[in-house]
Design a protein around this nucleic acid. Structure first.
Lengths: 112, 112
DNA sequence: TCGACCTGCAACTGAGAGGTTGCACATGGT
DNA sequence: ACCATGTGCAACCTCTCAGTTGCAGGTCGA
């Protein structure tokens, strides 16, 4: 306990948010969520950046645990792994609820 | 349709995720959620970066709409604005659900 | 076998993020 | 009035991120 904050878990959550904190990656995530599975070339079609840029973004997403890849013949298909999304949501929930409790305490302090 | 996605709303969501995608800022958000309201100096106490670094991070958080400040005598108190957190959660929900639908479609495609 | 297509690696660049230090300015307590 | 404390610039540095281009290596179909 005590020094529970700022642990490896928090770093993983920060990685997830970092991965989602880029417009290009965010649109990649949206496309993957909508299409199910796509190759880097398929994802770069319609994007305004090169295929290599998409590949780098996919690596970031995969390092964060948001995406997995699978070789399918001569192409590589990328798909979402929504589990980490749940971790991020859990973090947001915990901050929101502790914020609510803090509000209560503040209210009582002010009312003295 | 077509250009409906990747709009100003998506940019705002990316800004929120970007703001949360840094370990220092994430711990700031946690501290603010736990304490309710803190000054930059109060936040930098215990952190391993300088007060000025915290101030810059607070500016990023405020630009993303996650934090607001209020002058209180000679110090400036920062507090969470949990509304954007809800927006981020909503985004995660929508990606998750569209992902679930995509999984269904993929399953049916594979079963041909 | 040959050509088309997709991937993988490497080198390079520009811009911005994250951080620091130093100092000036305001404000509260004594 | 004085001093301590907290804030607000501004300049500066370093390192990483996002993106590009070029080319080599697999893999499928004809």
């Amino acid at each position: 306990m005590s020094r529970g904050t700022s642990s490896a878990r928090d770093r993983a959550v920060a990685d997830v948010f970092f991965a989602l904190g880029d417009g290009t990656r965010l649109s990649v995530v949206e496309k993957l969520g909508a299409a199910g599975a796509l190759s880097a070339t398929g994802l770069s079609g319609g994007a305004r950046v090169s295929r290599q840029a998409i590949v780098k973004h996919l690596r970031v997403l995969e390092d964060a645990g948001l995406v997995s890849h699978e070789r399918r013949g001569r192409e590589v298909l990328y798909a979402l792994v929504p589990q980490r999304l749940d971790d991020a949501r859990t973090f947001l929930d915990s901050v929101s609820s502790s914020w609510d409790r803090a509000l209560e305490r503040l209210r009582r302090l002010v009312e003295e």
